[in-house]
Deep mutational scan, measured.
Amino acid sequence: NLRWTSEAKTKLKNIPFFARSQAKARIEQLARQAEQDIVTPELVEQARLEFG
């Protein structure tokens, strides 16, 4: 299971509600691909840039 830093959680809250669950799934996918067990603000930002 993935842990989220408080900064990453804050960044996730800045994503519009309607896109948040999809973004969260993508962020967690990116973390797993990078073999990380902690979601960082950088991963959230990477996903945000993908979504535009």
Rank of each mutant, 00 (worst) to 15 (best):
A25E: 12
E45C: 05
I38G: 02
E50Q: 09
A19D: 09
E45P: 01
R20G: 02
E42F: 06
R48K: 10
L49K: 13
I38V: 14
A23D: 01
Q22E: 12
A25G: 05
A47G: 06
R20H: 05
A8C: 02
R3I: 14
A19H: 13
E35M: 15
P16A: 05
V39S: 00
E7K: 10
N14F: 10
N1G: 13
R48Y: 14
T40A: 02
T10I: 14
T10D: 14
K9P: 00
K24N: 02
D37C: 09
S6E: 15
V44C: 04
I27K: 01
T10K: 15
F51Y: 12
L2G: 02
K9Y: 13
P16W: 05
E35G: 15
A23N: 02
R26D: 04
R48T: 10
R26I: 10
V39F: 00
K13E: 13
S21N: 10
P16L: 03
A23C: 08
R32N: 06
R3N: 06
R26E: 04
S21D: 12
L2R: 02
R20C: 04
Q33I: 12
T10C: 08
A19Y: 15
L30W: 08
S6T: 12
E45D: 12
E28P: 00
E7M: 07
K13L: 11
I38K: 05
R32V: 09
I15W: 12
A47M: 07
I15P: 03
S6Q: 14
V39L: 01
Q33S: 09
A23R: 03
Q29L: 10
W4V: 00
I15S: 02
T40K: 03
L43T: 04
Q46D: 04
T5N: 05
A31R: 01
E28T: 03
N14Q: 15
R32M: 11
E28N: 03
G52A: 14
K13M: 15
Q46C: 05
W4A: 00
A25I: 13
L30A: 04
K11P: 00
Q22C: 09
T5L: 05
S21H: 12
Q36I: 14
Q29M: 11
I15E: 02
A8I: 01
I38N: 04
K9F: 11
F18A: 10
R48V: 14
T5S: 12
V44S: 01
A31L: 03
A23K: 02
A8P: 00
F17M: 11
K13A: 11
L30N: 02
P41I: 14
A47D: 05
P41T: 09
R20S: 03
K11D: 06
R3T: 15
L12H: 01
T5K: 03
I27N: 00
P41W: 12
Q22M: 12
A31P: 00
F51V: 07
A23W: 13
L2F: 06
K9Q: 10
L2M: 10
A23F: 13
A34H: 11
A34W: 13
R3G: 04
A25F: 12
E28G: 02
E35L: 13
R32D: 03
P41S: 12
Q36A: 10
A47S: 06
R26N: 04
L43C: 04
N14M: 14
I27M: 02
A34Y: 14
T10A: 10
E50R: 05
R20V: 04
I27S: 12
I27C: 08
K24D: 01
A31D: 00
Q36C: 07
Q22V: 10
S21P: 07
E45M: 07
E50P: 05
K11R: 12
F51A: 07
A19C: 11
S6K: 14
S21Q: 12
K9A: 10
E7W: 04
V44K: 01
K9G: 03
S6P: 14
R3L: 13
S6R: 12
E45G: 03
L12G: 01
Q22W: 12
W4M: 00
S6I: 12
L43R: 02
L43E: 01
N1F: 12
T10S: 13
K9E: 13
F18T: 06
R48C: 08
E50I: 11
L30G: 01
R32W: 05
A8T: 01
E50V: 07
I15A: 03
R20F: 03
A47C: 05
E50N: 07
Q29E: 14
I27A: 15
Q36K: 13
F18M: 11
E35W: 08
E35K: 15
I38L: 10
A31K: 01
R32Y: 07
Q29G: 07
R26K: 09
I15D: 02
T5G: 03
L12V: 03
A19T: 08
Q29N: 07
R26L: 11
A8H: 01
A47T: 06
D37Q: 12
F17Q: 10
F17Y: 13
A19K: 13
A47R: 02
V44L: 03
K24W: 03
L43H: 06
A47Y: 15
A8E: 00
R32T: 05
Q46E: 07
L43G: 01
Q46G: 03
L30F: 09
E35V: 06
I38S: 06
N1K: 13
R26Q: 07
Q29S: 08
A31F: 01
Q46M: 13
Q46R: 13
E45N: 07
N1Y: 13
S21Y: 07
V39G: 00
E7Y: 04
A31H: 01
T5V: 04
F17W: 14
E28C: 04
S21V: 11
E50F: 10
N14H: 09
K9R: 11
R3S: 10
E28A: 03
P16R: 04
T10M: 13
P16N: 04
Q22R: 14
L2V: 07
S6D: 15
Q22Y: 12
I15V: 07
L2T: 03
A47H: 09
A34D: 04
E42S: 06
L12A: 02
E28S: 02
F18Q: 08
N1E: 14
G52P: 11
K11W: 06
G52K: 12
E28Y: 03
Q33L: 13
L49G: 07
L12T: 01
L2S: 02
E50Y: 09
W4G: 01
T40G: 04
F51I: 12
G52E: 15
R26M: 09
L30S: 02
Q36T: 15
K9I: 14
E7S: 07
E45H: 06
K11T: 06
A23T: 06
S21W: 09
K11S: 12
P41Y: 07
Q36S: 13
P41H: 07
Q33E: 14
K9M: 10
E28F: 02
K24G: 02
I27F: 01
P16M: 03
A34G: 08
T10F: 11
K13D: 12
L49D: 06
Q36L: 14
E28D: 03
Q33M: 13
V39H: 00
R26A: 07
I38A: 05
K13T: 07
R20T: 03
I38C: 06
L43N: 04
A34S: 12
I27Q: 00
S21L: 11
A23P: 00
G52M: 15
A47V: 15
E35A: 13
Q46T: 06
Q46L: 13
E45W: 06
G52L: 15
K11Y: 11
P41N: 06
L12P: 00
A47K: 01
D37F: 14
N14R: 12
R32S: 05
I15Q: 02
